[in-house]
Nucleic acid binder design. Structure first.
Lengths: 162, 162
DNA sequence: GACAAATTACTCGGATACACTTTGTCCGAGTTTAAAAGG
DNA sequence: CCTTTTAAACTCGGACAAAGTGTATCCGAGTAATTTGTC
């Protein structure tokens, strides 16, 4: 079980969009060029973000994407779920019902004990992702990256932002 | 991203094997019949458990599987990793290196900030799974299930255990 | 110079193709127990 | 009754097939800004 690489791309795109001045838009083409990934396929991920209300888009030239909310109000979980979907990683297919010793009309009052554990783990995963916002990420990146690269990247982006 | 259904099957098989008296073995055929899943394919999952040292197997008639350790020393994580593999759900492909503003010889001293968050979430997931043992599961099941079904199931298993 | 029309640049969505993984089946080789055969 | 041989039941592993999902690519429709053309 692997997350799609679109999740990674979407997160990196959000990190870039966090650095964009308010009201400016950055096109899918520029985002794909900046990250070195195919534009058309990246578009699918961005459409996911758009549908989830995480980014806002405008059409036409100088159109593109910007965050629809302040970076502090968008979490990793929001982005991951927008691309990957909201359903649990563990799918219970109720095979306990196949037990030949169960009466046919027997009805369980609780979900399967195994599924409960797996879902709890899933919940822990989501909670960790929900605890980190794009603003947190931006702060981390500013500590990690040399100022020179940050400056040049910002310049590169502003050159292309509509 | 979904876990394989083999994970679910393997966990259910382990739950059954936890109820087996010490020294008895249960065949893949019986396990597949009990859970209503294809025998050959279930065999693949059991082979994973065997390779990971979670179950012990004997050949020949009256052969089959039993737990290789006390149920209290086998965790959900052990079983899940035996079937699903040990690598993280998030794969960092280092697309930050594609940033056109980075000098070609620049070397990051830390892993990507985005990957760090994703890996932390993965760790939380694993920690939750590592906190529950098969003994815990067995106890939960005994509280959940009616005594009648438990008794009949145990009888069914002992009939077939070698 | 003001207004309308055409062009351009972009997003969005659907259709399509390819590769990889999951899911499942089949069969042969090797191993151990149980049953049958022979003395 | 005891020993040897045969048969049966099982695991293990590899090869193979089908279905589903992930990873793209391509193209047409719609929209907004810009440019061009007209008065």
């Amino acid at each position: 079980m692997n997350l799609k690489n679109q999740v990674e791309w979407a997160l990196h795109c959000c990190a870039v969009l966090s650095n964009l001045p308010e009201g400016r838009y950055l096109s899918a083409r520029s985002l794909s060029e900046f990250h070195g990934v195919p534009k058309e396929y990246l578009g699918k991920a961005l459409q996911g973000l758009s549908k989830a209300g995480i980014v806002h888009t405008t059409l036409g030239p100088s159109g593109g994407y910007r965050l629809a909310l302040p970076a502090g109000e968008i979490t990793f979980l929001n982005v991951v779920e927008a691309v990957e979907g909201r359903k649990s990683t563990f799918q219970c297919s109720e095979i306990r019902a196949n037990n030949p010793c169960r009466p046919g009309d027997f009805c369980d009052d609780k979900p399967c004990a195994i599924a409960r554990v797996m879902w709890k783990a899933d919940e822990a995963w989501r909670q960790t992702l929900a605890a980190v916002s794009l603003a947190d990420l931006q702060q981390t990146l500013q500590q990690d990256l040399p100022a020179e690269i940050l400056r040049r990247s910002t310049e590169w982006l502003l050159d292309r932002a509509g």
